[in-house]
């Protein structure tokens, strides 16, 4: 008798625990506490490890035979379609915000800059990984050209695609912006960047998860704070679903 009662108690207890977790996950105070772990994880990584450490680079033989795409595979919108039809000859990358010299760069300008080639692993927040080769200028060369103002703390990447009816955007801090492996890739696996992977230009920020690697980049804006931009959390997935802004874990 007691055994059955206790087993019932155990099952009810487990069910109650899961229901309780759902309630906590929906309540604002509960979320506030859970979401604090992001800052702890970020600070621990930044304080306890080398913040200039390089992501592992692989050999050609170690590359994924096929590299899947994710998120937007073909942006809608007339403007992007027109650019694509013209092979991105009319596309310009704007670099503005808290900079001394706002830039407007064509693909030819970007290809003429010193380039970095890196074979790295792309880790999606969903759990899968793919290894690919990326080719493009280091972000810091563009930032040097534009001249960041002292007040700049973050770089916001505004994209041509929309997801869930909102424009895609992402942001990183200056530690990642000036990291040597943070590049703006216009080629992938020895070919011009395919549309599904973010043509004509995507961000590679190799020590963070896939959703931070903004595709279809149209504009890079230097800002002092992220509060005023879209939902204020620094990225579309951060705003909409509560993903971590720090995608290093």
């Amino acid at each position: 008798m007691t055994l059955i009662t206790r087993r019932t108690l155990l099952v009810t207890g487990a069910g109650g625990l899961l229901a309780g977790c759902d309630a906590i996950g929906k309540s604002q105070p509960g979320r506030d506490i859970l979401f604090k772990a992001e800052a702890v994880n970020r600070s621990l990584q930044r304080v306890l490890t080398d913040r200039n450490a390089l992501a592992r680079e692989y050999s050609d033989a170690e590359m994924s035979p096929r590299f899947r795409s994710n998120g937007t595979s073909r942006p809608g919108g007339e403007a992007y379609r027109a650019l694509m039809a013209g092979n991105f000859a009319d596309w310009r990358l704007r670099v503005d915000g808290l900079v001394q010299r706002p830039l407007s760069l064509s693909l030819a300008d970007i290809r003429a800059m010193p380039q970095r080639v890196q074979i790295t692993r792309h880790d999606c927040v969903e759990g899968w990984s793919a290894i690919g080769k990326w080719h493009g200028p280091q972000l810091w060369t563009l930032l040097d050209l534009a001249g960041l103002r002292d007040a700049a703390r973050y770089l916001v990447f505004h994209c041509a695609d929309t997801l869930l009816g909102r424009p895609y955007y992402e942001s990183i801090d200056l530690i990642d912006a000036f990291h040597p492996q943070t590049i703006l890739a216009w080629a992938m696996n020895n070919r011009t960047l395919p549309v599904a992977h973010g043509a004509p230009l995507r961000l590679r920020v190799e020590r963070q998860l896939g959703y931070k690697h903004a595709k279809y980049v149209m504009r890079i804006e230097a800002v002092a704070a992220l509060d005023g931009i879209h939902g204020g959390k620094g990225g579309l997935w951060e705003d909409v679903s509560g993903y971590e802004w720090y995608g290093g874990i």
Binding site: L18, A19, C21, D22, I33, A37, N41, W237, S241
Partner: peptide, 19 residues
């Protein structure tokens, strides 16, 4: 946890209790 599909919130739970 949570009981309906939510990767972002599951990660928040996981990375909090991992610490």
């Amino acid at each position: 946890i949570p009981s309906t599909y939510n990767l972002a919130l599951a990660r928040r739970w996981h990375l909090f209790f991992a610490l």
